[in-house]
Design a protein around this nucleic acid. Structure first.
Lengths: 230, 230
DNA sequence: CCAAAAGTGTTCATCGTACACCCATGT
DNA sequence: ACATGGGTGTACGATGAACACTTTTGG
């Protein structure tokens, strides 16, 4: 039943760019690992793995993310497919890159440790193997674009968060400071946040109110296509 | 030297979504072909082909575009990689889709005819094989996004074009009418167009001035990152 | 009482949008 | 003369950007 047997076949890898946000340090971070096998053993790289005949590419990406973090059902998006001949020296490998946004605190720290992975601030990215730095650069760019059109910030924060926390997240994504009055006004004007009675008191004496993201109101809005610029 | 021999290998296809603009009919069109081979012989599909061990994915895409149109050096961008297990019934094929913008009049009509291909208005898209309709939908969406941030409209028009022609192109891309005064004002304000002394007199008695795109001025602008919303 | 972060309004410039009439010319 | 598409200016509302002081409370 196969009509295509005469054509070349390729190893297809899936690489995962995993973003997390550290509310305490107010930094955007990436989950990176030190390779435990050849080639390039001992160097920093993204988490990756090979696609299997029995799964779709999306499923492969989910599997690989799960292997490292124990998480399912997280924000994940295909980024780009890297197909230069010598991107992996000595081997022809086509790599489909996916990026995900996860809540650091929900990830399985045991698993992460087992793989020799760590959360590294994007402001201090080490050199990575192959074309992985290029992948990260592309992912960051796409994250910035997404952040303007979808409320993805909420994927990176715990269920309850404060407005100053959310603001530092956006500042980390855009790599620049934002005016807190303008930020708060635009954000609340969208009507997506529910204010709670509880305060977060660890980072300031006064304390900042917690808010919660209202998924239902958001679903209403996207149908009309709205814009989420902050 | 190969460390990965134990993993699955895949057939990797490259599919080309080729946009063109018909200034006469004022319609955005796609270059589609009737398949001459199994499976799905006789049905409409995108142009495609298999990636080879000896070329990068980008080069494969260029090769495939060249086969059908005779063109090189055109606007081309990777769109998305489709990796569902059964997207090509009975065969596991991963397909990397690219979209290109070309000037219809520059394409080699002989080659196009040989492949049994035709220019079909996107307003009258036939059903395509496999997931090709999905590919087209995604390409169109990306084209709309690109059109807002880069002056890609010029890739689809001949070197000399009139402002009404350019406006109908954007109307075709966005699928809605635009105000001609606002369009003209914004466009000229960018300072990217050079007015010529010649007029296009086929579509109207009065005639519309030809303009030319100034690539140098454009290169200056992108360095500062400007916005091209029309 | 003081340090440190949270919270709050107004003004101004810019930009997008809506809108209607005259022009040039081939038939 | 008339039909057809080309070309032009203005007014209004909305939106983004800049900016400084008061509040709360733990130490």
């Amino acid at each position: 039943m196969s009509f295509y047997h005469e054509h070349d076949k390729f190893h297809v890898a899936v690489d995962a760019i995993i973003f997390g946000f550290d509310e305490g340090e107010r930094e955007l971070k990436l989950l990176l690992l030190k390779r435990k096998f050849e080639p390039a053993k001992g160097e920093w790289s993204l988490m990756g793995g090979f696609a299997k005949e029995s799964e779709s590419l999306d499923d492969a990406a989910k599997r690989i993310l799960h292997q490292l973090t124990g998480l399912d059902d997280v924000y994940m998006e295909q980024l780009y497919t890297f197909g230069e001949i010598n991107r992996d020296p000595g081997n022809r490998i086509i790599s489909v890159a996916y990026f995900s946004l996860i809540k650091i605190k929900e990830s399985d720290l045991e698993l992460v440790k087992e793989h020799g992975a760590s959360w590294v601030p994007i402001s201090a990215m080490p050199p990575l193997i192959f074309d992985h730095n290029e992948m990260v650069a592309k992912a960051l760019k796409k994250l910035q674009i997404r952040a303007r059109t979808q409320p993805i910030g909420f994927e990176l924060l715990p269920e309850k968060f404060t407005i100053p926390q959310l603001q530092s997240l956006y500042e980390a994504i855009y790599g620049k400071g934002l005016d807190k009055r303008n930020f708060r006004r635009k954000l609340l004007a969208m009507g997506l946040l529910e204010k709670l009675d509880e305060k977060e008191k660890e980072t300031s004496k006064k304390g900042a109110y917690f808010y919660r993201f209202d998924q239902d109101k958001y679903n209403d809005l996207i149908k009309n296509g709205f814009n989420f610029e902050l």
